[in-house]
């Protein structure tokens, strides 16, 4: 059986000021997996996502989403940036942030209307944030802010979701709520790519994993490749003790 790939990355190299952050990455993400990208700080995890989404220009290589360049497939893709990448003091409300997820399908100039508002309310409901819809975003806790970001991605109604550390700085109940939504999305046939830090939870949360440290170390099903050998290669220290179940 031939596998369908949601994302294909070929020979991708990204550099900041001529210093390579990602080196010659080949990666094929099968459709319908919930994939973690793991690696130490500075491994280029966020950069990989940003390059796929065209936010950063690579110096070499090509990227395709369902066999076409990202530019033609924007509407199939949703993105949750790192929570810390935006200014939460920005004068806006939770529902307004979620509505931003609809801007992509609207295109330039056209404004969101009732349909978009309804979609935003549904997404807020799904992440349990409906009671806070009119709250100013600076008045939300870290976990609530992350839920709003997730709702914004849900409203994009995409096939592929990219998430940059969605569990960073959230409490346990929010983490469970988020992972349940991610698992639900995978059940619905969506592909999810998640930058993840907590190695302990990888086997429990994900079914696919990519080890990254400037170069790709390994990628594949968690059951097959999530082992001490790959962890040691990625992090450069012996992980036998850390992940001893």
């Amino acid at each position: 059986m031939e596998q369908k790939f949601a994302i294909k990355v070929d020979d991708l190299t990204v550099a900041y000021d001529y210093k390579p952050v990602l080196w010659d990455i080949d990666l094929a993400v099968p459709e319908g997996v919930l994939m973690a990208i793991v690696g130490p700080n500075g491994a280029g995890k966020s950069t990989l996502i940003k390059a796929v989404l065209g936010i950063i220009k690579p110096i070499a290589g090509s990227i395709s989403i369902y066999d076409k360049p990202y530019k033609e497939q924007r509407k199939l893709v949703a993105y949750v940036p790192q929570k810390g990448s935006v200014d939460w003091d920005f004068p806006t409300t939770a529902i307004d942030v979620v509505m931003m997820g609809t801007y992509g399908s609207l295109g330039w100039i056209k404004r969101p209307g009732q349909k978009e508002k309804k979609a935003a309310l549904e997404a807020l409901e799904k992440v349990g944030m409906l009671p806070f819809k009119n709250r100013q975003i600076s008045q939300l806790s870290g976990g609530q802010q992350q839920r709003v970001f997730l709702a914004r991605a849900l409203v994009q109604n995409a096939s592929i979701y990219f998430m940059d550390e969605p569990f960073q700085g959230v409490d346990a109940s929010t983490e469970i709520a988020i992972i349940n939504i991610l698992k639900e999305l995978r059940k619905a046939g969506k592909t999810l790519v998640v930058v993840h830090h907590d190695l302990q939870t990888v086997p429990e949360y994900f079914d696919w994993v990519t080890f990254l440290n400037v170069k790709k170390i390994a990628a594949g099903p968690v059951k097959e490749i999530f082992n001490d050998d790959n962890l040691t290669k990625t992090y450069g220290i012996n992980y036998k003790v850390a992940i001893n179940k």
Partner: peptide, 13 residues
């Protein structure tokens, strides 16, 4: 959107 979240803005086109 480009003022609040540059990354999303770029991803959305």
């Amino acid at each position: 959107v480009s003022t609040f979240d540059k990354g999303l803005s770029a991803a959305l086109g």
